[in-house]
Design a protein around this nucleic acid. Structure first.
Length: 454
RNA sequence: GUCGCCUUCGUCUAUCGGUUAGGACACCGGGUUUUCAUCCCGGCAAGAGGAGUUCGAUUCUCCUAGGCGAUGCCA
C-alpha cells in the first residue's frame, strides 16, 4: 500500500495542503505502507527553491516522514517525453498550433452542439511536428469512478475537451505528469483535494489510453475561511511554519487538522499514534469545513497540558532561543515547564512567562506597582524573614508568607499579590511559593528590595 | 453559462429509519482558587426549502435554492 503527497512549490506550504498530506500519511502508516513525497515543479516559471525548502521544513517539523522521495518532476522529463512520444505515435495525441481566436470559435461551435471542443480534425495541418501536444479525449461515453470519499462520480466525455499534455516549449503539464508518476511509483491511493475531482476523469482517460491500472481516488473536501470562501491569507495564517512561530505543538496542529472533516465518535484529542490507528477514509466528511483558529488554540493548550515535559522541552527550546533566554543562569528548565504547563496556551506564552526565572528586569508595571507596593512595612518584614531562610523551598517560603500574614494580621492576598508582582514584574505568575522557589533566593531578595525602593 | 461536489447548533462534528437530535470549541452564568489560568457544575444554540417512499424520516429518492469548485500552455 502506497500513498503520496504531491505539492507544487509555488509558495509556502498551505494548511489545507498539509491536511491532505496528513490524511495520505496516516492512511499509509495505518496499513504499514509507504508514503511518498513528490514535488510537482513542472511549472518552472512559478516554482521556487525557497518554496521547496519550506515544504521540506514543514514536513520535518510536523513529523510527516516519507519513505520515498522527495522526488522532483523536473528530474523526470525524459520519461514524460517518452510517454508523450508514445501517445503521439499511437494516435492518442496530436500537435496543435491553433490560435486563441480559432480555439475560441471551436469552443463556441462545440458548445452550441452541447459538446466540448475536440480540436483534433480541426487542426488543419496534420503533419505538425511542433506546437502544444493535446491528448485526444474520447468523444463519447461516460467516465465513471468510485471515489473513496465522495462515492460514485460520473462525467460525460462530452464535457471534456482535448487537454494539453505538453506546452509549446515541450515541457509536460500536470495532468500528464501525475498520471505517469503515480503509475511509475506504484501509488495505489491518490488522496488529494476535491478541487481535483474535475481533473480525475481526464486522468482516467489518460490511464486508459496508456493501458495502465487505475489507482483508488479519494478526494478530500476543502478547508474554507470564516466567510465560506476557500481558505487564504485573508482569513488566517496559512503557512505551516507560522504555526511553529506562534507556539503550536506540531501534534496539536495535526490533531486539529485531522478533526477538521474527520471524526472518530466524540473523541476530540488524539495523539499521533491514535490518529494513525483510528484513521479511516470512510469517516471523512464530504462537506467542506471552516477553519477555526480558536479551537486550534484550545487543542494546543490541551496538548501542552497533557504532553511530557521532555516533549515540551524539545519544542520550547527553539522559542527560548528566539527570545534570547539563556537557561544556564537559573532553575532547571524542567521545573519551570512543569510549573507553567497548566497555564500556557502556546509555547510562546510559556517562553514569555519563563523569562522571569532567567532574566532580570529593572522596572515593574507602573500601575500595579503603585497599587501593591504601598505597604513597605510588610515588604520589609517579608524581606528580612526570607533573608534568614536557609532551605529555599516552596513549602518554607509559604510558611514565611503565612508568618508575615499572622504577624501583621492581614490576609494572604495582601502579601501574596505584592510579592507576586515583585517577582514577576507584571503580576502574572502562578503559585507564589513555587514561583519564588524557582526565581531563586538571590533574585527574590533583589527584586523585593527593588519593590521596597519603588 | 455549462459541468461537478456539498448542505445538522455561530464553528467542528455524532446519528448506520424510531433519540427529550449527543459531544466539543466559542459564548453566557455559577463554584473552587492568593492574581491570571487550570479544574468542576449549569445554560444558550441545529437537521436550507418543497415533494415523494414509509406506520414513522435528519437519515432513502427527486426537485428547488444556496455555497464551493472546475471550465489555463497553474497544480
Amino acid at each position: 500500500m502506497k500513498s503520496r503527497f504531491a505539492p507544487s512549490p509555488t509558495g509556502d506550504l498551505h494548511i489545507g495542503s498539509i491536511r491532505t498530506a496528513l490524511f495520505a500519511w496516516a492512511w499509509a502508516k495505518k496499513h504499514q505502507g509507504k508514503f511518498v513525497l513528490r514535488i510537482e515543479d513542472t511549472d518552472i516559471e512559478r516554482s521556487t527553491k525557497s518554496s521547496i525548502n519550506n515544504i521540506l521544513e514543514s514536513m520535518d517539523w510536523l513529523g510527516l516522514e516519507y519513505e520515498e522521495g522527495p522526488f522532483y518532476q523536473t528530474n523526470n522529463f525524459d520519461r514524460y517525453k517518452e510517454i508523450i512520444k508514445q501517445l503521439l505515435n499511437n494516435d492518442k495525441a496530436y500537435y496543435c498550433q491553433c490560435s486563441k481566436e480559432r480555439l475560441q470559435k471551436l469552443r463556441e461551435d462545440a458548445l452550441k452542439k452541447g459538446d466540448k471542443a475536440k480540436y483534433d480534425g480541426h487542426c488543419k495541418n496534420k503533419n505538425l511536428t511542433t506546437g502544444v501536444v493535446r491528448f485526444k479525449n474520447p468523444t463519447q461515453g461516460l467516465v465513471v469512478f468510485n471515489d473513496e470519499i465522495k462515492g460514485e462520480i460520473i462525467i460525460n466525455n462530452k464535457e471534456l475537451d482535448d487537454l494539453i499534455i505538453a506546452r509549446y516549449d515541450s515541457t509536460p503539464t500536470y495532468n500528464l505528469t501525475v498520471v505517469i508518476d503515480d503509475h511509475d511509483m506504484g501509488i495505489d491511493y491518490v488522496i488529494r483535494g476535491d478541487d481535483h475531482i474535475n481533473n480525475t476523469p481526464r486522468q482516467i482517460n489518460l490511464y486508459k489510453a496508456l493501458n495502465w491500472d487505475l489507482p483508488k481516488f479519494a478526494h478530500l473536501p476543502m478547508i474554507l475561511g470564516s466567510d465560506g470562501k476557500r481558505l487564504s491569507k485573508r482569513h488566517a495564517v496559512v503557512g505551516i511554519m507560522n504555526y511553529k512561530q506562534q507556539g503550536f505543538l506540531p501534534e496539536a496542529l495535526l490533531n486539529y487538522l485531522a478533526r477538521l472533516g474527520w471524526s472518530y465518535g466524540d473523541k476530540e484529542l488524539f495523539s499521533i499514534n491514535e490518529l494513525i490507528e483510528l484513521f479511516t477514509l470512510k469517516n471523512i466528511n464530504k462537506s467542506p469545513a471552516i477553519f477555526d483558529s480558536t479551537k486550534l488554540l484550545w487543542i494546543n493548550q490541551e496538548h501542552i497540558k497533557n504532553s511530557s515535559i521532555k516533549n515540551i522541552n524539545k519544542h520550547l527550546a527553539w522559542h527560548l532561543q528566539q527570545k534570547n533566554i539563556i537557561i544556564n543562569d537559573g532553575p532547571d528548565i524542567n521545573k519551570v515547564i512543569q510549573h507553567l504547563q497548566q497555564r500556557s496556551k502556546t509555547l510562546v506564552e510559556m517562553a514569555e512567562q519563563s523569562k522571569m526565572f532567567y532574566q532580570d528586569f529593572d522596572k515593574f508595571e507602573e500601575n500595579l506597582a503603585n497599587k501593591h507596593f504601598k505597604d513597605k512595612k510588610m515588604l520589609q518584614l517579608l524581606l528580612s524573614k526570607l533573608e534568614k531562610l536557609n532551605i529555599w523551598e516552596a513549602d518554607n517560603i509559604k510558611i514565611i508568607i503565612q508568618d508575615v500574614c499572622s504577624e501583621l494580621d492581614i490576609g494572604f492576598g495582601k502579601v501574596g499579590q505584592p510579592f507576586r508582582l515583585a517577582l514577576s514584574g507584571s503580576g502574572n505568575a502562578g503559585n507564589i511559593d513555587i514561583t519564588a522557589e524557582l526565581v531563586g533566593k538571590k533574585r527574590t531578595l533583589q527584586r523585593l528590595k527593588m519593590a521596597i525602593n519603588f
